[in-house]
Design a protein around this nucleic acid. Structure first.
Lengths: 224, 224
DNA sequence: AACTCTCTGACATTTTTCTGACACAAAACT
DNA sequence: AGTTTTGTGTCAGAAAAATGTCAGAGAGTT
């Protein structure tokens, strides 16, 4: 499973910001909806892998959102509650919450629970088919769903670039991030690594060339 | 589901008493084990639907109990921890904890989590590769339905790899999980074990080679 | 055209894994 | 108890893979 999509339905901007920041740092894609109506719409169209749902929402409350969502989707839901008592209503209604957290919660705990929920969720046939896909956890990389074997260095390199698609990295930066902070050597090593990577990619996707060289600046993964 | 069976592995009598009282009031059957050895024995014989496992135990700690239990059972485990940091070790090792609670916890929360775990506990599809099959409960391993005799170490190793097919394990991780937390030795021992395992597999399935070495990373069971 | 930077292939070096031999320990058997 | 068998860690060298270095060709820029 790669780059799981997490929909956040939460009205407090501060909490949203915190969630988005940490989830994206953990390599999840995020989408924020500020109220229940927008949340339902986003859930149905964007088809997230997990919904983080605040119980207290303006207009339509989280329980109602959950009930309506359940009529058309089995997406896992993690509830956020301000008070412990609220969760009794969720559990009592058997709405199919997969987990819940009471505010205030530690980010580590949230991430652990999200990871656990996603691990449990059966790998359903996901629709989108970008040509290049990377799974940091399994260290696998696929092109058109066909696995491509990469060396450690190659994978580390492509991981940095892909997870920051569009961002330019200088050779020095790449050495730091993919080789390691204690590495001292010619920055031309980066050229060689890129060369080998491109050669492998060309084998299976001759018309793509997703790694762009910016003269005098560095390299970047072509933005989507 | 009628009268789910819950095994409590916990050494503090006060906590045990509290747990038993409340769980039985909630119509669960309970069984208490005061230390890891008794716990393992009870788990194997009584076959509970859920194990509540304290991390801090005399003699054998909870993680070790979990590891040994996982060799022969897929029963859901809910960890109890005194400190939040401890849970990182569990999560880090991916030992298959289904949930955890930090002391002190409210009884209502415990009951809610237990209910959630039991609700989720759907029979796993367990899709073994057609050629290789492993039964943790009986510690048997078959290739093309023909039994293959493995040593304890070999079985532990293959069990870890197969139950996490596709996931890469470093030599250090494998030493921890298959050899034991207290083992200190050269990580090259892993190479040797893998070598012997491969030799045995080659005898009966010369064209498979399901154990993949990832240079600089570790080993993994070829993903399905 | 001159200059600069990037790309590529060849080669050398380094790193990592694999294998067989051996030694020791534990277990099984007499 | 002694003996054999089995299991496993350690070691050293072989084999394989990965990667750094270099030099020249190629491409972009002024």
């Amino acid at each position: 499973m790669l780059m799981s999509k997490i929909l956040i339905i939460e009205d407090e901007p501060a909490v949203c910001k915190l969630l988005v920041y940490n989830l994206e740092k953990a390599h999840y894609q995020t989408w924020v909806a500020q109220d229940g109506v927008q949340g339902l719409s986003a859930a149905l169209q964007w088809k997230p892998d997990l919904v983080v749902l605040d119980i207290m929402l303006p207009q339509m409350d989280g329980l109602e959102v959950c009930r309506q969502l359940r009529q058309s989707s089995a997406v896992p839901i993690l509830f956020l509650t301000a008070r412990t008592e609220e969760i009794d209503r969720v559990l009592g209604l058997e709405l199919g919450a997969d987990d819940y957290l009471c505010k205030p919660f530690s980010m580590r705990e949230l991430l652990a629970r999200i990871k656990a929920i996603l691990r449990r969720a059966a790998p359903l046939p996901s629709a989108p088919s970008p040509t290049f896909q990377m799974d940091p956890a399994q260290r696998t990389f696929t092109v058109h769903h066909q696995p491509l074997v990469l060396t450690k260095l190659e994978f580390d390199l492509i991981a940095v670039l892909m997870t920051h698609a569009g961002q330019v990295f200088s050779r020095e930066q790449l050495l730091q991030v993919a080789w390691g902070y204690d590495y001292f050597g010619d920055t031309r090593a980066v050229d060689s690594a890129i060369k080998r990577l491109r050669a492998k990619l060309r084998e299976v996707a001759p018309d793509e060339d997703p790694i762009e060289a910016l003269r005098g600046i560095g390299y970047r993964w072509k933005a989507a």
